[in-house]
Amino acid sequence: MPTDWGSLLIQLFSGLSRAMMLFLVSSGLSLIFGVMNILNFAHATLWLLGGYITFSIYTLLAGYYGVSILLLAPAVVAATLALFAIGWAIERTLVRRMYGRELPEQLLLTFALILIIGDLIRLFWGVQNLRIVLPIEPMPVLGSFVNPYLFFIIAVGLIVAGLLWWFLARTRTGKIVRAAVYSRDMVSALGIRIPNIYALVFALGVAIAAFSAGVFLPIIPIGLGMDMDLIVQCFAVVVIGGFGSIVGTFVASLLVGIVYSFSILIWPDGALAIIFVILVAVLIWRPWGLFGTEMRF
């Protein structure tokens, strides 16, 4: 295990950036579960789809204007909007029919989506891993070199986390969403159209996930099967933090991201196993998570 400060710092930054991605994906997962009581197994698969769409748009743009980091921005925005629309459509046509159904049936529906979307990705993009290569010079930090893009990702992650918090805490729609976590019936009784709120939350959750996939393309190549690795980690994050709690999801993302990134130094094969040990411990000790309330348990 390397012990010089430089490489530890690199692990810290890569852990933090990983934590940001975990947060962006898990926050949607947690929100969807909190509001609709649906555990969206396909969340990371939609994340993956967002990554592929970003890649295609970026490649198209780069073909016209040449390789540039600036072109990533419109590609990410377009993919985020596309996934917002796809999320909306999925909620309207499929997920909607699952409210009030048994938990296993809900899980199976989203599981079926994983299989279908996964194969559609294979149909359109093939099986090879895709990556956007950007000409970014590594920056010297304490005698080691860090990819400055990591700092950008951490900053973007924090900004989106802040926006999400602002949306939930300060806007009218956000307050309705939070109220729906506690009592759908009451919100509905106030004359607010719950079905629209559901569609919005689902679409928003999926869009944020797609956004993170696009932003991460320059450092993480995407490929089939990555969605399952990610969804299992996001479950861990959401359970550790507590379902429905955005603060809990944020703290748990930091915990899981950093633990993962440091355990890779010690035991590369077992990095995920360590996360599962933490998850099992939390589930046994506080099944409702570090920041969740016992309410739903």
């Binding site: 499929l94 029919r97 699952m98 049936e105 199976l108 529906l109 599981f111 079926a112 989506l113 994983i114 299989l115 279908i116 996964g118 194969d119 559609l120 294979r122 149909l123």
Partner: peptide, 15 residues
Amino acid sequence: YWSLTIGLIILGMVL
């Protein structure tokens, strides 16, 4: 495309 096939079957069954 086996996953697609079984995915659609499961979707139909659940619905």
